[in-house]
């Protein structure tokens, strides 16, 4: 049952990611859809994944990411990661030049959906708000580097293995892993 739920959630989240991405790419800009400005990868002790970034008219940008949640995998406790999808709207709070590098400080809210593990719990569903803040550096080679910190304020639902009923609680790892750094390497299209 758990394996089926994991496969179904992986397929659904991947389909959601690709549908939103296709809608953004295929539909014309007159309808308010935009072309991706960046494509990149996410590297963090808590998750690895890929993302697309869509620039906005006022200097903001929307980021859509799909990631493998690595809780328990890096320590060797579990062998399979969870899956997580986030959509985040970031605003450039301040930008300045440091040693010839264009540096932006950004922050913004978003949403998170996932099928992953929480601390001391079995695999379950997670849904809620996502907050991201970081510093992005624009390099000359059409490559951006960003150091980011994210948190998820979300609900978590999973099966209790002892009583075989569903438990609803807060997603604890979304708050306890806030200070795990996240490095994003992206290519400007």
């Amino acid at each position: 049952m758990v394996k089926i739920a994991r496969k179904v959630s992986t397929i659904l989240l991947s389909l959601l990611f690709s549908c939103v991405l296709r809608a953004q790419i295929i539909l014309p800009e007159e309808f308010g859809f935009r072309r991706p400005g960046e494509i990149g990868t996410i590297h963090s002790p808590k998750q690895f994944g890929a993302y697309f970034c869509f620039p906005g008219p006022d200097g903001s940008y929307d980021t859509m990411a799909i990631m493998a949640d690595m809780y328990g995998v890096i320590s060797g406790k579990h062998s399979s990661p969870g899956i997580k999808f986030t959509y985040n709207h970031s605003i450039v709070v301040k930008d300045w030049m440091v040693n010839g590098w264009d540096v932006d400080l950004y922050a913004g809210p978003g949403i998170s959906l996932g099928y992953l593990r929480d601390a001391g719990r079995t695999m379950g569903g997670m849904a809620g708000l996502n907050l991201a803040a970081g510093i992005k550096t624009h390099m000359q080679r059409n490559v951006d580097l960003a150091l980011e910190f994210t948190s998820d304020i979300a609900f978590y639902i999973s099966e209790n293995p002892r009583y075989h009923n569903l438990q609803l609680s807060m997603y604890k790892l979304g708050l306890t892993r806030v200070f795990y750094p996240q490095l994003k390497i992206s290519y400007r299209l």
Partner: peptide
């Protein structure tokens, strides 16, 4: 080696 900018590379 991919040189991104002066002083930084991948």
């Amino acid at each position: 080696h991919c040189q991104l900018d002066h002083g930084c590379g991948l």
